[in-house]
Write a protein that binds this DNA or RNA. Structure first.
Lengths: 225, 225
DNA sequence: ATATTTTTGTCAGTTTGCTGACAAAAGGGT
DNA sequence: ACCCTTTTGTCAGCAAACTGACAAAAATAT
């Protein structure tokens, strides 16, 4: 069991700001905490979609696999985000795979319970509505990138988002630990792994970034903005 | 003013099934009806997003334009669908262009009014929630097509959806009127107009479809399924 | 510690479909 | 009806980036 309690997470994530203490404790009582290791699958396509997942720590990728085995990832979920939100939106079965990219702590709560809490908590309802809007805008932006940007541009955009979303600002740039495998970046940007490798090396040779498998550091903050 | 009253549309579209008569009349009173000609713009990017649009007749495409003038369309909205739903989801400005593809009749209602109606009508709330879910799934499927299907496959998939969504089954196949310009199909499938033309001609030579600018007819219903 | 597996780095050939171009057909305006 | 504009049909050349391959480095398993 993680060191931090469920209640700690509920109280410290923005989605739940504004909920009264009693509702917070209700949700605490009705939810479960689980840990998953890298590579573990949270849900597969065609499984019943009746649970809301709140990611506390780690990262989860949401992907689809074609019949010939090719993979594409639509989202990289980070701490504080929910996933499996299709169940709130009338979807009875999952269409995607949710897979752990970095050891995760996840709070789960049944869809029905969550919907009751949304009904009883206008601020939660508003938070979730905005979150769904954010999700819709994110995937629309993904479509735009796929259509208008070439492979290099997509990879660079992804790297910028990755370090800003998951990293920290340091004296000499931005740092994020850990980094991702090249194939994972390729799946998230609809490119080939070799292209990812090429872009990383070019940026590295230009001094824009520094990277190993364990970290990505962006030293050129002008490139970042 | 269109022949059919606003109330007729409200009563005959699935999104509003289950609303009581009083609420239906409230919505009728608080909404406005407008007609737009082909090519007219309903909203531009960066405009305030404070209205819900209910398409009664015609078709509307939702698009983005890159800085170099390239266009891509994310959705083709048909009768009975709402658009501009971002305003319900916390989005204050539009990010897309909504443009009329086929002369349209549109019912507009302010976001705030619509949200009040949703609050007072659980069945409307549920309908809209499911509609948003449908919208999210539709755009996820679009991403999947962009990544996994080649240009020809995307065009063929689009044609199948187009005729099924907007056409009618006849004795000798399916018929939809009117058809679309090749550039419009190209924008909706992220392909070049010349490729659309090539695919249409191949299908036509094989006897799978018959088309002019005014209609698309699918004679090979095996291809359609 | 060693062996095996996975990931990264590099490269050349191939493929998809875009791009640019032009002519013919169709549609719209006067 | 005529003229102009837009759309469709066709084609060849070009380019982006994928694919397949192999070796080296790193991670994992025993």
């Amino acid at each position: 069991m993680a060191e931090k309690t469920k209640l700690w997470y509920l109280e410290n994530f923005n989605l739940f700001t504004g909920m009264n203490q009693e509702s917070m404790e209700d949700m605490d009582r009705m939810s479960k905490m689980r840990s998953n290791k890298k590579k573990e699958i949270i849900y597969f396509p065609d499984e019943r979609s009746d649970t809301i997942y709140i990611l506390k720590e780690g990262k989860v990728k949401i992907s689809r696999i074609a019949e010939d085995g090719r993979t594409m990832s639509m989202q990289l979920i980070g701490p504080g985000e929910i996933f499996g939100e299709g169940s709130l939106l009338g979807q009875e079965k999952h269409e995607n795979i949710a897979e752990v990219v970095e050891d995760a702590v996840i709070c789960t709560i049944s869809k029905d319970t969550f919907q009751e809490m949304m009904k009883d908590n206008p601020s939660l309802n508003l938070s979730i509505t905005k979150f769904i809007g954010f999700r819709l805008r994110t995937i629309q932006a993904h479509v735009e990138d796929l259509v208008f940007k070439n492979a290099q541009e997509r990879i660079e955009s992804f790297l910028k988002r990755y370090v800003k979303n998951f990293g920290k600002q340091m004296v000499d740039g931005w740092m994020v630990r850990p980094f991702l495998k090249h194939q994972e970046i390729a799946d998230l940007t609809a490119t080939a792994r070799q292209t990812v490798n090429m872009v990383l090396n070019e940026l590295s040779e230009k001094g824009t970034i520094k990277y190993t498998r364990r970290f990505l550091k962006v030293t050129d903050t002008i490139w970042l903005n």
